[in-house]
Amino acid sequence: MKTNRNLVVGAALTGFFTIAALISFLWVPYDIEALNIADRMKTPSFSHLLGTDHFGRDILSMVMIGARTSIAVALVAVGIGMGLGVPLGLAAAARKGSLLDELIGRGNDLVFAFPSLLIAILITATFGPSALNAIIAIGIFNVPVFARLTRGSALSIWKRDFILAARVSGKNSAQISVEHILPNLSSLLIVQGTIQFSLAILAEAALSYVGLGAQPPTPSWGRMLADSQTMISLAPHLALAPGLAIVFTVLGLNLLGDGFRDVFDPRLRRGRT
C-alpha cells in the first residue's frame, strides 16, 4: 500500500503543476506583461491570491507561467540527455570492451569531472543568457547519466537467452539493441527520467536565480526568487510562492519516480541519490 502512496502523492503534485502550466497557456488571473507600480508588494488577498510582486504583477499568474518555463526547460534538457545518452550507452554495451566502449566510458567520466554549474555559467557567458542555453547546459550533463545507466543495464540483458536467439536469427547488434534491449530498459529509463526531470527543475531554478535562464518578461521561478531577495525583509511572501512551487514540483517528481520504481520492479530498489 505504501508503494501506491508515493505514486499517488507524486502524481497529484506533478499533475497539479503540469495542469497549472497548461492552463496558463489559455488563462491566467492577470496579464503579467502590464505592470502596475501603484499596486506593488501587496500581501495575499481575494483579488490577488498570492499577492503582487515589486512591479504590481499578480504572483499567482507569474507562478503559473513560471511552471511552464520550468517544465519546458527541464523536459527538453532531459530529452536531450536521453536522446544522446541512451544510444551511446546501447552502443557501448553492444561493443563491450572495444575502443568505442572505452571512449564513451572515459568521455562520461570527463563530463562528470566538470563542475556542472560553472560550465553552465561559462556557456551562457559565451552565448548569452537564454532559456535555450540553459537547456543545453543542463542537457549536456544529463547525457553521461543516461549513457552509464543504459550501458550497465544493457550489459546484463545482453547475457540473457532471448538475445542469443535473436543473434542466431541473424540480426546485427544495432537491430538487437533497438528491438530487444531498448524495450527492456523502458521502465528503468522512465524511473531515471523522472528523477533527472526533478534535478533539471532544480538546476533551471539555480541558473535563472543567477540570471542565466529565460529572460524577462518570461517569468521563471528562479528569477522571481532573485528579484525578491532584496525585498525579503519588506515582503517575505515574494520569496515564498516561487520557492514553494519549486519544492513541491521537485518533491512530486521524486515521489513519482519512487512510485514508478515500486510499480515497475520492486527489486529495482536501488539507493536513490
Binding site: 506583461e33 505592470l35 507600480i37 512591479f55 548569452g128 543568457p129 537564454s130 529572460q215 524577462p216
Partner: peptide, 22 residues
C-alpha cells in the same frame, strides 16, 4: 528593473522588445 518597466511601456504603443540581461 527599469528595462522591464520600459519594455512594458513600449509594448503598450506597439513596440515589442526582446530583453537580454548582460
Amino acid at each position: 528593473r527599469g528595462g522591464e518597466i520600459i519594455a512594458s511601456q513600449l509594448r503598450a504603443v506597439g513596440i515589442q522588445t526582446e530583453i537580454s540581461n548582460l
